[in-house]
Design a binder for these strands. Structure first.
Length: 195
DNA sequence: CCTGTGATCAGCT
DNA sequence: GCTGATCACAGGC
């Protein structure tokens, strides 16, 4: 038994998933994410919170968003527009309903697999956007609710100091003013530039 | 660079 | 029924 602090899936190599989603979103930038050994460096994230009208968790738990109200340090995966899978990391605590949407990676590992899955040769378009990223990493509903600290997931914190920029979130109509989108400064692998 | 539109379906009212 | 945390493509500037 640990004396204090987050443990298990909620704390992974420097990223503490029990903290507020904007802080987790910021600290995830620079972290390497792999699924079955395929992935890269997280360069873009967005925070969501149950008090935020744009969040799936805003109206409380439902069968779809149940994982978002589950343990921190787990995945919440959902289907967007009937076409695209999207990957979130659950934050805070059981029953809270906060998460971070992983929006873009700089591909580093298993690039051939990602090109194959997406039939896309331009490395800048392999993981630039949540739907593209999920397709490149073969993320589907099967990973919903799974812990991020055990296979097929792998998270490795950045070893060097990172400069992070932020701005308004993308593709939502509510709470547009909250600057809860975060990115790796100067990265050419984000889904859209930061201003 | 920007804007508009179709695809396609689970979830919610 | 309608909406949407998206993408790819088409067309205009």
């Amino acid at each position: 038994m640990r004396a204090a602090g987050a443990s298990g899936a909620s704390r992974l190599r420097g990223v503490d998933f029990t903290r507020d989603s904007p802080e987790v979103a910021r600290r995830l930038i620079g972290t390497t994410l792999l699924v079955d050994g395929v992935g890269g460096v997280i360069v873009e994230t967005e925070a969501y919170d149950p008090r935020d009208p744009a969040s799936h968790s805003f109206s409380g738990p439902t069968p779809r968003n149940a994982a978002m109200f589950g343990p921190p340090g787990c995945a919440y995966v959902y289907l967007s527009h009937g076409i695209h899978w999207c990957l979130n990391f659950v934050c805070r605590e059981v029953g809270f309903g906060a998460g971070v949407l992983i929006r873009a990676l700089e591909p580093t590992t298993g690039i051939a697999s990602m090109m194959d899955r997406r039939r896309q040769r331009d490395p800048r378009l392999l993981c630039a956007g949540p739907g593209r990223l999920a397709q490149a990493l073969a993320i589907t509903r099967e990973l919903n609710g799974k812990r991020l600290d055990v296979p097929p997931f792998s998270l490795t914190a950045a070893t060097t100091r990172i400069r992070v920029v932020c701005g308004p979130r993308i593709g939502i109509s509510k709470a547009v003013d909250q600057p809860w989108r975060f990115g790796l400064s100067g990265s050419r692998y984000v889904s859209r530039p930061f201003r």
